[in-house]
């Protein structure tokens, strides 16, 4: 589903690489955590998967395609198979919950009748039944993130990328979000979540890929947040 083969990413020539010879494979239907301190390369990995960035060397395969050779004009169609969620939700303030989710379908040209039938289902999946008419500012942070997740999965992507989705939320709300992501995963969607929330990772007991300075230092299924990881600092 997602395969990194000896991938290096250098943003500025002469600087330390953001990713350093990373090789990795994530299978269909998996739920994987990317953990590590800020600047360890988690977001770079997600950007490479989304083809927002291109690898400096090595190849990145997503859904069977080498994304570095993907033509620019094909990128939009490629992205329709991938959903993304961010720490800051990125909802449109002047649109209702329903419209925010419907927006993702409108802009790729989905017909009206399918929008009307799909959006309520997805809102129900993320636990926002009956809140379609609310505006984002009327919602709590957790609810806003649920809207963002609904928008990310409404086009039934095969992969869901989540970049620190609980970064702005309290622990209890975060658990709720994790439950939603878990539910999305249960529908067969591969979920890759970058985080440094120790508690959540330990509780979920899923695959954990740990990055330090752009290199994978640990990759274990059913893992915990790194044993050597102490309070957000880097390993010595």
């Amino acid at each position: 589903m997602i395969r990194f083969s000896n991938v290096t990413k250098v943003y500025t020539r002469g600087q330390r690489p953001a990713l350093d010879h990373v090789t990795l494979e994530i299978e269909r239907g998996e739920f994987a955590f990317l953990v590590g301190a800020s600047g360890s390369g988690k977001s770079t990995m997600l950007a490479l998967v989304l083809r927002q960035e291109r690898a400096s060397s090595g190849t990145v395969y997503v859904l069977g395609q080498d994304v570095s050779t993907l033509a620019d004009r094909k990128v939009p169609f490629f992205r329709r198979q991938i959903g993304v969620v961010f720490q800051d939700f990125r909802l449109l303030e002047n649109k209702t919950v329903f419209e925010n989710v419907a927006f993702a379908m409108q802009v790729i040209g989905q017909p009206r009748h399918s929008i009307l039938s799909v959006v309520p289902d997805v809102l129900s999946l993320v636990g926002l039944d009956g809140m379609g008419k609310r505006l984002p500012h009327e919602l709590s942070g957790g609810e806003q993130q649920r809207v963002a997740i609904a928008r990310a999965v409404v086009n039934r992507p095969q992969v869901l990328l989540a970049d620190e989705p609980t970064g702005n939320l309290d622990p209890l709300t975060s658990e709720g979000i994790m439950a939603v992501l878990d539910r999305v995963n249960q529908t067969g969607t591969t979920v890759v979540m970058a985080t440094h929330d120790v508690g959540l990772v330990n509780e979920m007991r899923r695959r954990v890929i740990e990055l330090v300075d752009g290199a994978i230092v640990r990759d274990e299924s059913g893992g915990r947040y790194g044993a050597g990881y102490v309070g957000g600092g880097r390993r010595p």
Binding site: R79, Q81, L92, I108, G109
Partner: peptide, 17 residues
Amino acid sequence: QKETGIMRLVGASNLFI
């Protein structure tokens, strides 16, 4: 910008954006 950013992420074509 926010709207076009989201459009790009969910795979709207350049022309459409």
